[in-house]
Nucleic acid binder design. Structure first.
Length: 277
DNA sequence: CAAATATCCTGATAGC
DNA sequence: TGCTATCAGGATATTT
Protein backbone atom coordinates (compact mmCIF):
# COMPACT_ATOMS: atom_id res chain seq x y z
CA UNK A 1 0.00 0.00 0.00
CA UNK A 2 1.67 3.17 -1.08
CA UNK A 3 2.19 5.58 1.81
CA UNK A 4 4.24 8.76 1.97
CA UNK A 5 7.67 7.21 1.16
CA UNK A 6 6.31 5.20 -1.77
CA UNK A 7 4.34 8.15 -3.15
CA UNK A 8 7.39 10.40 -2.80
CA UNK A 9 9.50 7.83 -4.68
CA UNK A 10 6.93 7.77 -7.47
CA UNK A 11 6.78 11.57 -7.47
CA UNK A 12 10.52 11.82 -8.01
CA UNK A 13 10.38 9.32 -10.88
CA UNK A 14 7.32 11.07 -12.29
CA UNK A 15 8.98 14.46 -12.12
CA UNK A 16 11.84 13.26 -14.31
CA UNK A 17 9.40 11.83 -16.82
CA UNK A 18 6.76 14.57 -16.90
CA UNK A 19 8.08 17.99 -15.96
CA UNK A 20 8.79 20.03 -19.08
CA UNK A 21 6.84 17.58 -21.26
CA UNK A 22 3.51 17.92 -23.04
CA UNK A 23 0.56 15.53 -22.99
CA UNK A 24 -0.64 14.87 -26.51
CA UNK A 25 -3.36 12.29 -25.94
CA UNK A 26 -5.32 10.68 -23.12
CA UNK A 27 -6.74 7.17 -23.41
CA UNK A 28 -9.31 6.12 -20.83
CA UNK A 29 -10.05 2.54 -19.88
CA UNK A 30 -12.14 2.34 -16.71
CA UNK A 31 -14.26 5.39 -15.97
CA UNK A 32 -14.26 4.57 -12.26
CA UNK A 33 -10.71 5.96 -12.01
CA UNK A 34 -11.99 9.44 -12.90
CA UNK A 35 -15.24 9.09 -10.92
CA UNK A 36 -15.19 12.70 -9.69
CA UNK A 37 -15.79 13.81 -13.28
CA UNK A 38 -19.36 13.63 -14.58
CA UNK A 39 -18.10 13.83 -18.14
CA UNK A 40 -15.02 11.83 -19.22
CA UNK A 41 -14.51 14.36 -22.02
CA UNK A 42 -13.82 17.02 -19.42
CA UNK A 43 -10.87 14.96 -18.22
CA UNK A 44 -9.41 14.15 -21.62
CA UNK A 45 -9.85 17.61 -23.18
CA UNK A 46 -8.61 19.16 -19.95
CA UNK A 47 -5.29 17.31 -20.29
CA UNK A 48 -4.75 17.27 -24.05
CA UNK A 49 -2.01 19.79 -24.83
CA UNK A 50 -1.16 20.28 -21.17
CA UNK A 51 2.43 21.32 -20.50
CA UNK A 52 3.68 19.94 -17.19
CA UNK A 53 5.46 22.53 -15.06
CA UNK A 54 5.93 20.78 -11.69
CA UNK A 55 5.02 17.84 -9.50
CA UNK A 56 4.08 18.08 -5.84
CA UNK A 57 2.89 15.77 -3.09
CA UNK A 58 0.77 16.25 -0.01
CA UNK A 59 0.49 13.16 2.13
CA UNK A 60 -0.43 10.36 -0.26
CA UNK A 61 -1.79 12.72 -2.94
CA UNK A 62 0.28 13.49 -6.04
CA UNK A 63 -0.31 16.84 -7.69
CA UNK A 64 0.85 17.47 -11.24
CA UNK A 65 0.81 21.16 -12.14
CA UNK A 66 0.25 22.01 -15.77
CA UNK A 67 -0.37 24.91 -18.09
CA UNK A 68 -2.81 24.48 -20.95
CA UNK A 69 -2.74 27.62 -23.07
CA UNK A 70 -3.64 30.44 -20.71
CA UNK A 71 -5.10 28.13 -18.11
CA UNK A 72 -3.27 26.60 -15.17
CA UNK A 73 -4.54 23.30 -13.80
CA UNK A 74 -3.65 20.39 -11.56
CA UNK A 75 -3.93 16.67 -12.16
CA UNK A 76 -4.40 14.99 -8.77
CA UNK A 77 -3.58 11.30 -8.39
CA UNK A 78 -4.15 8.99 -5.42
CA UNK A 79 -2.87 5.40 -5.70
CA UNK A 80 -4.93 4.11 -2.75
CA UNK A 81 -4.18 0.39 -2.25
CA UNK A 82 -3.12 -1.03 -5.57
CA UNK A 83 -2.55 1.90 -7.91
CA UNK A 84 0.67 2.15 -9.87
CA UNK A 85 2.05 4.76 -12.24
CA UNK A 86 4.29 3.17 -14.82
CA UNK A 87 6.41 4.63 -17.59
CA UNK A 88 6.13 2.93 -20.97
CA UNK A 89 8.82 3.89 -23.47
CA UNK A 90 6.57 3.32 -26.47
CA UNK A 91 2.78 3.24 -26.92
CA UNK A 92 2.91 -0.39 -28.04
CA UNK A 93 4.62 -1.63 -24.89
CA UNK A 94 2.38 -4.54 -23.81
CA UNK A 95 -0.52 -3.25 -21.70
CA UNK A 96 -0.84 -4.70 -18.22
CA UNK A 97 -4.28 -5.83 -17.09
CA UNK A 98 -6.15 -3.07 -15.25
CA UNK A 99 -4.53 -0.20 -17.14
CA UNK A 100 -7.19 2.47 -16.66
CA UNK A 101 -5.54 5.68 -17.92
CA UNK A 102 -2.80 6.28 -20.47
CA UNK A 103 -1.16 9.70 -20.81
CA UNK A 104 0.70 9.90 -24.10
CA UNK A 105 3.52 12.44 -24.25
CA UNK A 106 5.00 14.45 -27.09
CA UNK A 107 8.29 12.59 -26.64
CA UNK A 108 6.60 9.33 -27.65
CA UNK A 109 6.55 7.78 -24.16
CA UNK A 110 3.53 7.08 -22.01
CA UNK A 111 2.58 7.33 -18.33
CA UNK A 112 0.12 4.59 -17.37
CA UNK A 113 -2.14 4.28 -14.37
CA UNK A 114 -2.67 0.63 -13.46
CA UNK A 115 -4.93 -0.30 -10.55
CA UNK A 116 -6.42 -3.79 -10.03
CA UNK A 117 -8.58 -2.90 -7.04
CA UNK A 118 -9.80 0.33 -8.63
CA UNK A 119 -9.78 2.31 -5.39
CA UNK A 120 -7.26 4.75 -6.82
CA UNK A 121 -8.36 7.89 -8.60
CA UNK A 122 -7.34 10.78 -10.80
CA UNK A 123 -9.04 14.12 -11.24
CA UNK A 124 -8.46 17.56 -12.67
CA UNK A 125 -8.86 20.68 -10.60
CA UNK A 126 -7.74 24.29 -10.34
CA UNK A 127 -4.39 25.28 -8.76
CA UNK A 128 -6.09 26.02 -5.42
CA UNK A 129 -6.91 22.30 -5.07
CA UNK A 130 -9.86 22.93 -2.76
CA UNK A 131 -10.74 19.21 -2.89
CA UNK A 132 -7.74 18.65 -0.61
CA UNK A 133 -8.69 21.31 1.94
CA UNK A 134 -9.56 18.69 4.52
CA UNK A 135 -6.14 17.03 4.19
CA UNK A 136 -3.70 18.08 6.89
CA UNK A 137 -0.11 19.24 6.35
CA UNK A 138 2.38 16.76 4.93
CA UNK A 139 4.10 14.70 7.62
CA UNK A 140 7.51 15.92 6.42
CA UNK A 141 6.49 19.57 6.16
CA UNK A 142 8.94 21.50 8.40
CA UNK A 143 5.93 23.28 9.90
CA UNK A 144 4.79 19.95 11.37
CA UNK A 145 6.23 19.71 14.87
CA UNK A 146 5.38 17.71 17.98
CA UNK A 147 3.02 20.55 18.88
CA UNK A 148 0.81 19.66 15.92
CA UNK A 149 0.35 16.23 17.50
CA UNK A 150 -0.25 17.57 20.98
CA UNK A 151 -2.82 20.08 19.70
CA UNK A 152 -4.44 17.53 17.38
CA UNK A 153 -4.82 15.00 20.19
CA UNK A 154 -6.40 17.41 22.65
CA UNK A 155 -9.84 16.20 23.69
CA UNK A 156 -9.55 12.96 21.76
CA UNK A 157 -9.44 9.35 22.92
CA UNK A 158 -8.53 7.57 19.68
CA UNK A 159 -5.69 5.03 19.62
CA UNK A 160 -2.21 6.24 18.65
CA UNK A 161 -2.39 4.19 15.45
CA UNK A 162 -5.82 5.61 14.58
CA UNK A 163 -4.46 9.08 15.27
CA UNK A 164 -1.43 8.60 13.00
CA UNK A 165 -3.74 7.28 10.28
CA UNK A 166 -5.97 10.37 10.52
CA UNK A 167 -4.92 12.31 7.43
CA UNK A 168 -6.60 15.44 8.74
CA UNK A 169 -3.99 15.83 11.50
CA UNK A 170 -0.85 15.03 9.54
CA UNK A 171 -0.94 13.49 6.05
CA UNK A 172 1.08 10.61 4.65
CA UNK A 173 1.31 7.93 7.34
CA UNK A 174 -0.48 4.64 6.58
CA UNK A 175 -0.72 1.29 8.32
CA UNK A 176 2.89 0.14 7.77
CA UNK A 177 4.62 3.30 8.94
CA UNK A 178 2.18 3.81 11.81
CA UNK A 179 3.28 0.43 13.21
CA UNK A 180 6.96 1.25 12.71
CA UNK A 181 6.61 4.69 14.32
CA UNK A 182 4.79 3.22 17.34
CA UNK A 183 7.57 0.66 17.81
CA UNK A 184 10.35 3.21 17.63
CA UNK A 185 8.45 5.48 20.02
CA UNK A 186 8.04 2.59 22.48
CA UNK A 187 4.24 2.94 22.53
CA UNK A 188 1.60 0.37 21.71
CA UNK A 189 -0.57 1.22 18.71
CA UNK A 190 -3.65 0.77 20.89
CA UNK A 191 -2.53 3.35 23.47
CA UNK A 192 -5.10 6.15 23.67
CA UNK A 193 -3.72 9.56 22.69
CA UNK A 194 -5.36 10.87 25.86
CA UNK A 195 -2.69 8.97 27.82
CA UNK A 196 0.33 10.16 25.85
CA UNK A 197 2.47 12.91 27.36
CA UNK A 198 4.10 15.90 25.66
CA UNK A 199 7.59 14.33 25.74
CA UNK A 200 6.13 11.10 24.36
CA UNK A 201 4.54 13.00 21.47
CA UNK A 202 7.91 14.63 20.91
CA UNK A 203 9.38 11.16 20.50
CA UNK A 204 6.53 10.07 18.21
CA UNK A 205 7.23 13.07 16.00
CA UNK A 206 11.00 12.50 15.94
CA UNK A 207 10.54 8.83 15.07
CA UNK A 208 7.97 9.65 12.39
CA UNK A 209 10.42 11.93 10.58
CA UNK A 210 13.26 9.45 11.03
CA UNK A 211 11.29 6.47 9.72
CA UNK A 212 9.74 8.31 6.77
CA UNK A 213 13.07 9.78 5.67
CA UNK A 214 14.86 6.43 5.97
CA UNK A 215 12.07 4.79 3.97
CA UNK A 216 12.33 7.39 1.19
CA UNK A 217 16.07 6.75 1.14
CA UNK A 218 15.29 3.04 0.61
CA UNK A 219 12.72 3.91 -2.10
CA UNK A 220 9.81 2.62 -0.02
CA UNK A 221 8.54 -0.70 1.34
CA UNK A 222 7.72 -3.54 -1.01
CA UNK A 223 5.95 -6.31 0.94
CA UNK A 224 5.76 -10.00 0.14
CA UNK A 225 2.91 -9.42 -2.29
CA UNK A 226 5.22 -7.33 -4.49
CA UNK A 227 2.38 -4.87 -4.90
CA UNK A 228 4.33 -1.65 -4.64
CA UNK A 229 6.98 -0.92 -7.26
CA UNK A 230 8.37 2.31 -8.68
CA UNK A 231 7.74 3.67 -12.19
CA UNK A 232 10.01 1.18 -13.88
CA UNK A 233 8.93 -1.80 -11.80
CA UNK A 234 11.68 -1.85 -9.15
CA UNK A 235 10.92 -2.80 -5.53
CA UNK A 236 11.78 -0.61 -2.54
CA UNK A 237 13.99 -2.12 0.17
CA UNK A 238 12.67 -0.60 3.40
CA UNK A 239 10.67 -3.74 4.30
CA UNK A 240 14.06 -5.24 5.24
CA UNK A 241 14.23 -2.66 8.00
CA UNK A 242 10.71 -3.21 9.34
CA UNK A 243 10.86 -4.00 13.06
CA UNK A 244 7.26 -5.08 13.59
CA UNK A 245 4.99 -4.69 10.58
CA UNK A 246 3.90 -8.09 9.22
CA UNK A 247 6.33 -9.82 11.64
CA UNK A 248 3.77 -11.52 13.89
CA UNK A 249 5.20 -14.64 15.55
CA UNK A 250 8.81 -13.61 14.89
CA UNK A 251 11.23 -12.43 17.55
CA UNK A 252 11.58 -8.74 18.30
CA UNK A 253 14.89 -7.46 16.87
CA UNK A 254 15.46 -5.51 20.09
CA UNK A 255 14.44 -7.94 22.88
CA UNK A 256 13.44 -11.26 21.33
CA UNK A 257 9.83 -11.21 22.51
CA UNK A 258 7.31 -12.59 20.05
CA UNK A 259 5.76 -9.85 17.91
CA UNK A 260 1.99 -9.74 18.26
CA UNK A 261 -0.75 -8.94 15.81
CA UNK A 262 -4.16 -7.48 16.60
CA UNK A 263 -6.80 -5.14 15.27
CA UNK A 264 -6.43 -1.46 16.14
CA UNK A 265 -8.48 1.29 14.50
CA UNK A 266 -10.09 -1.36 12.28
CA UNK A 267 -6.68 -2.24 10.81
CA UNK A 268 -4.09 -4.95 11.39
CA UNK A 269 -1.51 -3.76 13.89
CA UNK A 270 1.80 -5.31 14.95
CA UNK A 271 3.77 -4.56 18.12
CA UNK A 272 6.32 -5.90 20.60
CA UNK A 273 4.63 -6.59 23.96
CA UNK A 274 7.88 -5.85 25.81
CA UNK A 275 9.36 -2.84 24.01
CA UNK A 276 6.03 -1.07 23.61
CA UNK A 277 3.75 0.02 26.41
C1' DC B 1 -18.30 16.50 18.00
C1' DA B 2 -15.71 12.04 17.91
C1' DA B 3 -15.49 7.38 16.89
C1' DA B 4 -17.12 3.26 14.88
C1' DT B 5 -19.05 0.96 10.89
C1' DA B 6 -20.19 -0.04 6.01
C1' DT B 7 -18.72 0.55 1.45
C1' DC B 8 -16.08 0.27 -2.80
C1' DC B 9 -13.08 -3.93 -5.55
C1' DT B 10 -10.04 -7.71 -6.96
C1' DG B 11 -6.20 -10.89 -6.19
C1' DA B 12 -4.24 -13.90 -2.96
C1' DT B 13 -4.94 -17.30 0.25
C1' DA B 14 -7.22 -20.79 3.15
C1' DG B 15 -10.11 -24.54 3.42
C1' DC B 16 -12.61 -28.19 1.60
C1' DT C 1 -6.94 -30.34 -8.72
C1' DG C 2 -10.28 -26.94 -8.57
C1' DC C 3 -13.78 -24.72 -6.48
C1' DT C 4 -15.74 -21.24 -3.06
C1' DA C 5 -15.40 -18.35 1.05
C1' DT C 6 -12.65 -15.06 3.41
C1' DC C 7 -9.60 -11.31 3.89
C1' DA C 8 -6.99 -6.98 3.10
C1' DG C 9 -7.19 -1.95 3.06
C1' DG C 10 -7.53 4.36 2.14
C1' DA C 11 -10.80 7.40 2.15
C1' DT C 12 -15.56 8.63 2.46
C1' DA C 13 -20.46 8.44 3.68
C1' DT C 14 -23.34 6.97 7.14
C1' DT C 15 -24.53 5.55 11.74
C1' DT C 16 -23.91 5.44 16.68
Amino acid sequence: MPELPEVETVRRDLDAVLTGRTITEVILGRMRTIRRHDDPEQFTTGLRGAHIVATRRRGKYLMIDFQQGENAGVLVVHLRMSGQLLHALTPDDPLLAHTHVRLQLADGTEVRFVDPRTFGEMFLTSPACSELDHVGPDALDPLVTAKVFVDGARGRSVSLKGFLLDQGVVAGVGSIYADEICFRAGLRPSRSVSRISGPQFKRVHTMMVEVLEAAIEARGSTLGDGQYVDMVGRAGTFALEHRVHARAGLGCVACGSIIRRGIVAQRSAYWCPTCQR
